[in-house]
Design a binder for these strands. Structure first.
Length: 437
RNA sequence: UCCUGAGUAGCUCAACGGUAGAGCAUCCGGCUGUUAACCGGAGGGUUGUAGGUUCGAAUCCUACCUCAGGAGCCA
């Protein structure tokens, strides 16, 4: 295909190129026109002088509407007056289609309208930037694990039972009489694969049926979960710290332009490097209580509960890099968390709160490896023992200390982009009351 | 599920008890360096739905629907 990507035009200065794309916007002054041409890799400004092109080319350009599909031939020239620094002196155009009036005009729009037109909204510069950062995050995730001795172990999406309680699961019919649930975590399966392969990770879609309606929730999101045999809580924290740092560095390296488009203050991201502050739950509670006493937090936090969104926001805004809060009360955490041998009322778990008030991006810890303790926990949480028979086998046949964590791709992307709402970090968000497009 | 707010032209908003209006988009005209270009003109409405109050309702009242923001829960 004879075609040049707009991304690569800087390599073709002085040459004639063919660009296949769409009209992003156009400005004209009588006998001079400046069509902005978009091809998915970038945007370039064209220049059409009426007297320099055949009559047909001029009249074709006059008819184009926003997002009409076109194939443009022209000469590349560097020009300071053009956004992006390069211009295309147009020689010829082939009109593929004159688009119907495009709903998303260059002026501002409301959230509902944009979400209803998500399939068209994706063509905007802003969505282009955000979703490019998302792709970079995912590439970094894979590269990090693949080059550090981890093996990809895809875990099932249909699962037979809840891993942490059925209220948050989507239920589907699974042939005759059986019910299946869409996965909310691959972790239990990865404890099995970790016993087989040592260091593993799974990466795939995750489903939560909670009726959460906030800027940090999706009902369908992508989660990456490493699991490491013989890892203890400190090893899990070391891993989380290296992993997040790697992702941030990669995005800074490869997606500067996109971050600039989003007006992201990258100086905050540049500070991110190990070691991350490690804060015991006990000490975090003290910080929250002091904040309340100083009038910086409305509700007084009492020891024993899980942090609410305002608490997380406060804690993460106190540090210039992500903070790792560890050893929460066992009572507020999942049944499979290992209790601290020195203080059994605390779980060997860790939440990583992203900086700048973005809240939890990673949750994980060390898993309970003792059969008796796990049985007790399963009963205490009112879970059906028979659903977990295979999981309990892992504690009968060569039990071992191990741990890992899960990171939400979209929460991480929201933070790195510095944007308000998670819904823009996945091409087609699934949220409470939104299943279309 | 609960709390708060909002639904008026294709879109973003104004009019707050007395003749429904502007910008953008669309169409027509003008402009040889535009930067969400600009200037002139035209078309475009069952004011979310159903009731009610009133001489008169986009405006006040009631119910419902939809959306947004937040809470709880979580990655």
């Amino acid at each position: 295909m004879n075609q040049t990507c707009i991304r690569d035009v800087s390599k073709h200065v002085g040459q004639e190129v063919t660009i296949k794309g769409w009209l992003y916007n156009s400005r004209s002054s009588g006998k001079l026109m400046f069509p902005q041409i978009r091809d998915g890799s970038g945007i370039i400004q064209g220049v059409v002088f009426k007297k320099n092109v055949p009559e047909r080319v001029w009249s074709d350009f006059e008819k184009l509407t926003q997002e009409s599909s076109i194939i443009v031939r022209g000469n590349v020239r560097a020009d300071e007056r053009a956004p992006g620094g390069f211009e295309l002196d147009v020689v010829d155009v082939e009109v593929v289609q004159i688009a119907e009036p495009f709903p998303i005009t260059p002026k501002e729009h409301g959230v509902e309208f944009l979400m209803d037109n998500r399939h068209l909204w994706l063509r905007s510069k802003r969505q282009h930037a955000i979703l490019s950062v998302r792709a970079e995050v995912i590439r970094a995730v894979r590269d990090f694990f693949d080059s550090n001795g981890f093996l990809l172990m895809d875990t099932p999406i249909f699962t037979p039972a809840a891993c942490e309680g059925t209220t948050t699961l989507f239920e589907v019919d699974y042939f005759e009489d059986a019910k299946a649930y869409l996965t909310q975590s691959g972790q239990l399966y990865n404890e099995a694969t970790a016993a087989a392969f040592g260091k593993v990770y799974c990466f795939g879609p995750t489903f939560r049926a909670e009726k959460s309606k906030t800027r940090r929730h999706l009902t369908e999101f992508w989660m990456v979960e490493p699991e490491v045999a013989y890892a203890e809580l400190n090893d899990v924290m070391d891993l989380a710290e290296q992993f997040l740092t790697f992702i941030v560095q990669r995005v800074l390296e490869n997606r500067r332009k996109e971050l600039a488009e989003l007006e992201r203050d990258t100086s905050k991201l540049e500070k991110i490097a190990p070691p991350f502050p490690r804060l015991q739950y006990d000490d975090a509670v003290k910080m929250l209580q002091e904040a309340h006493d100083k009038g910086e937090l409305e509700a007084r936090f009492e020891w024993g509960g899980d942090f609410g969104a305002p608490d997380e926001t406060y804690l993460s805004s106190q540090f210039d890099r992500p903070v790792m809060v560890h050893r929460y009360p066992t009572a507020v955490k999942a049944f499979y968390m290992k209790p601290d041998p020195e203080r059994p009322e605390l779980a060997m778990c860790v939440d990583v709160l992203a900086s700048e008030g973005y809240g939890e991006v990673i949750g994980g810890g060390q898993r309970a490896d003792d059969l008796e303790y796990l049985l007790k926990q399963i009963h205490a949480h009112g879970l059906p023992e028979e659903s977990f028979d295979w999981y309990l086998d892992l504690r009968k046949y060569g039990t071992f200390p191990h741990g890992g964590f899960g990171m939400g791709i979209e929460r991480c992307t929201t933070w790195l982009c510095g944007i308000e709402h998670i819904r823009e970090t996945i091409p087609f968000p699934r949220m409470l009351y939104r299943l279309k497009p």
